[in-house]
């Protein structure tokens, strides 16, 4: 763990996680209730992202993928979904104002922007996936018809 902001996040993990969770649940038009399976899944994956920050990029990618899968089917615009890591930045700045040198904030911002771009890629993959599912479903519905047409 050689990045200052990661050290800060891990030191304040419960508080950071709880605030991040609340801010993400507030993305939903009527604020998602924290006891729902969806909120629990979101909470789990947000925690995993925090834990994965100082791990391999593959592990981080996996967690970003999971959260994007959830966000890509929700009833809010992509811009809101993609503000996920900006929220995390705001939370950390609130928790540790003045304690961190600018150079560490810059590093933090760069990493969060990188994660946002990664999340955007994954978000788009999942949106595309939804269209692919529609095509596959249509094909399954006409399975016998197309089989006969090909015969």
């Amino acid at each position: 763990m050689n990045k200052e902001y990661i050290r800060l996040i891990h030191k304040n993990r419960p508080l950071v996680l709880e605030r991040w969770r609340q801010s993400v649940l507030a993305f939903f038009p009527q604020r998602m209730h924290s006891g729902t399976p969806l909120a629990e899944a979101l909470s789990d994956v947000l925690a995993e992202i925090l834990d994965a920050l100082d791990e391999s990029s593959e592990r981080v990618g996996e967690t970003v993928n999971r959260v994007s899968r959830i966000l890509a089917v929700q009833n809010f615009p992509p811009s809101k979904a993609m503000s996920l890591f900006f929220e995390l930045q705001a939370i950390l700045r609130e928790i540790a104002p003045g304690k961190v040198k600018q150079i560490h904030w810059d590093e933090f911002r760069t990493d969060m922007e990188q994660l946002t771009l990664q999340a955007f890629d994954s978000y788009m993959v999942h949106r595309e996936k939804i269209y692919q599912l529609k095509v596959e479903e249509s094909k399954r519905q006409t399975f016998m018809m197309s089989r006969r047409a090909k015969a």
Binding site: P37, A41, V73, N75, L133, K134, E137
Partner: peptide, 17 residues
């Protein structure tokens, strides 16, 4: 129906979970 896929994926989440 396919045009309702977003809602279906949301509504089916508890089962998928």
């Amino acid at each position: 129906t396919e045009e309702y896929m977003d809602i279906r994926l949301r509504g089916g989440f508890p089962r998928a979970n």
